[in-house]
């Protein structure tokens, strides 16, 4: 992988210098109070290298990803601006990319977006003018060729480190490596995977990735989510599409006394990270502690990932 950075992203610098990267996640509030983000930032600061700001995740209306990212930067943390194709056409997408870059955002994650059916506005019209792969192509073109999709030249190109997600656990499994290859061909530079609970299946996917040499073309960060309780584990196993929670993990959470389940969830997350650290082709981890930001530091600490290196 090239050691030469294309942006001023700290995350990019770390990854290109061969360091094991850690990213976290911060969900914006359902309101206009910036304090909510500042509080989360205080919990997350120095616990990871960069932090995703979700873009109306699960199609529930929240403060915008761009504005939340700006508040985060004011607190001295590096955001990864998530952007979904569900809510914007190519005009709004390119405009928000310019705006985000102008405000100092250095990383972007290109996503299709959950269907609006899951959210609080299922009546909404969706857009999907582009899909996630085409969104990757769009940012690459804007940054590297200095051109809009319409062909006109951009004055002041947006210098963003370009990421995407991939879910090795969704079906059909046989195209999940080829799908990553498509994202790589589109120009993605880092990947954060769906939450990994089934390490065996993830290992099979990674083997396919390494066999094709894709890990030499894109930095792969394994997704890790701690269970807060057996209830949450069961919910994720049964109700979240594309999530693979093996029975033995469910049983392990179930067999743990209720008051110790949160600790057990963290223990599982730490064990997962330790295994990921040993896995060929893995460049880092993405810790998604959903509405449990205070635990990111504890997980990173226990997994031996702190303090974070400076670049």
């Amino acid at each position: 992988m090239s050691g030469e950075c294309k942006t001023d992203s700290r995350l990019e610098k770390l990854l290109r210098s061969g360091k094991f990267a850690v990213t976290g996640e911060c969900g914006p509030p359902r309101g206009a109070d910036p304090e909510v983000i500042r509080k989360k930032c205080a919990l997350l600061k120095d616990k990871a290298d960069a932090f995703n700001i979700t873009d109306n995740q699960t199609s529930v209306v929240r403060m915008s990803s761009i504005s939340s990212a700006v508040i985060m930067m004011q607190q001295g943390l590096e955001p990864v601006m998530q952007m979904v194709c569900r809510d914007r056409n190519r005009i709004a997408i390119q405009s928000d990319i310019l705006g985000g870059a102008a405000l100092g955002i250095k990383n972007m994650l290109c996503l299709s977006g959950d269907h609006q059916k899951f959210g609080d506005h299922p009546q909404a019209k969706n857009v999907f003018d582009l899909d996630s792969i085409q969104l990757i192509q769009t940012v690459r073109r804007m940054r590297d060729e200095g051109k809009f999709l319409g062909g006109e030249e951009i004055k002041g190109v947006p210098r963003l480190f370009i990421g995407a997600a991939e879910n090795p656990f969704a079906d059909p499994f046989e195209i999940r490596v080829p799908r990553l290859a498509k994202k790589v061909a589109a120009g993605v530079e880092f990947i954060q995977t769906q939450c990994i609970f089934n390490l065996k299946k993830f290992g099979e996917w990674m083997k396919g990735v390494v066999d094709r040499g894709l890990h030499e073309k894109v930095f792969i960060l394994g997704g890790v989510t701690p269970f807060k309780s057996f209830g949450m584990a069961r919910y994720m196993a049964k109700n979240v599409p594309g999530m693979d929670v093996p029975d033995e993990l469910l049983q392990r959470m179930k067999d743990t006394p209720k008051e110790q389940q949160a600790d057990e969830g963290i223990k599982i997350a730490v064990e997962t990270i330790q295994q990921l650290k040993e896995m060929p082709g893995i460049s880092g981890v993405h810790i998604m502690a959903i509405e449990w930001e205070e635990k990111v530091g504890e997980i990173a600490e226990k997994a031996g990932l702190l303090p974070r290196p400076t670049v």
Partner: peptide, 13 residues
Amino acid sequence: SKSLLNGPCGGST
């Protein structure tokens, strides 16, 4: 459901 030209998304189960 998302008219993705380069699918499937991560929700295919």
